[in-house]
Amino acid sequence: MEIDESKLLRCPVCEAVNIDKGKHNRCRRCGSSIYKHHRFRTEKSWAYLITAIIAYIPANIYPMLITEKFGHVEESTIFGGVVYLWEHGSYPIALIILFASIIIPILKFIVLIYLLISVKYPIGKEKKVSKHKLYYLMEIIGPWSMIDVFVVAILAALIHLANIQIIAGTAATAFALSVFFTLLAARAFDTRLIQAYK
């Protein structure tokens, strides 16, 4: 049986190979819609990404942790927390937080922006496979930026004693939102575009 290879579509959910039937394709096996040509190819991913970047700004300006010690209130931002840990000799923890809360989110923004631009404009033409790896890497390290939010949640739950109290600040909410939207942006990015715009 001869099959026209250009008329084959891969289901993004179950990876079954489907034959292209025109406008609306549904996977023969799992019933998920397969979009051959997204009407909004990259716009959805852009929208989520921009939301994530906007949410990342208050996440860095507002305090992440508010510590009340004997009536004395102390507020620390993400970066302030890293500096504090570093100065007090907790180098590994400072590095973990630095990576999870600052380097990974910014790296994710840059990688996504690069991928979104590179599928529309001819940038990095020869590096087809490495772009897939870049996307894969970004998907793997993405959730790890949630560490700080979890730390804040655990500390806030454990430390509400009579004279010492830790409260989650505004930045924790903003940061959780930022991570959430970057995950959505990564999911919305159609990896097939990398191949289509070679």
Partner: peptide, 29 residues
Amino acid sequence: LKVLSHSLPWAMLDVFLVGVFVSMVKLVK
């Protein structure tokens, strides 16, 4: 199988475990 495929990035138990370790180190002092 569809739900399992879609839900994968939203399960963050391993990340939470590291979060627990970090908060333990912070509290030790």
